[in-house]
């Protein structure tokens, strides 16, 4: 339930060493300390996390949906940017 007393916080979790934090959802909480506890309790109940980041939702700068064509369409025609034209030697292993 959204009330001014408990603003929204975005939750990011890193599941393993070497991976990046990923956005998993959001929680309502009165302040950062309680938000961290809420994130831990809501999103790491099944061993999902080694590290949690909390960000006030109102600190997120989001792209404007109206700019979608300008922002993202120009890349659609540039398939040479995908690294799919190279043979990766077996010795390299998993990338």
């Amino acid at each position: 339930m959204s009330t001014p007393a408990t603003p929204l916080w975005e939750v990011f979790i890193r599941s393993r060493s070497g991976l990046a934090h990923r956005h998993v959802g959001s929680v309502h909480a009165a302040d950062a300390t309680l938000a961290m506890q809420a994130a831990r309790d809501v999103y790491t109940r099944r061993g999902e996390g080694l590290s949690v980041w909390i960000v006030p939702s109102n600190a997120i700068i989001a792209s404007d949906p109206a700019d979608k064509e300008m922002m993202f369409e120009p890349t659609a025609s540039k398939i040479y940017r995908h690294p799919t034209f190279y043979e990766v030697p077996d010795e390299v292993g998993h990338m």
């Binding site: 339930m1 408990t6 929680v27 309502h28 909480a29 506890q37 809420a38 309790d41 809501v42 109940r45």
Partner: peptide, 11 residues
């Protein structure tokens, strides 16, 4: 009182 605390208390 709130969903978050529901889970905290259950945990």
């Amino acid at each position: 009182p709130i969903l978050e605390e529901d889970l905290s208390l259950a945990n």
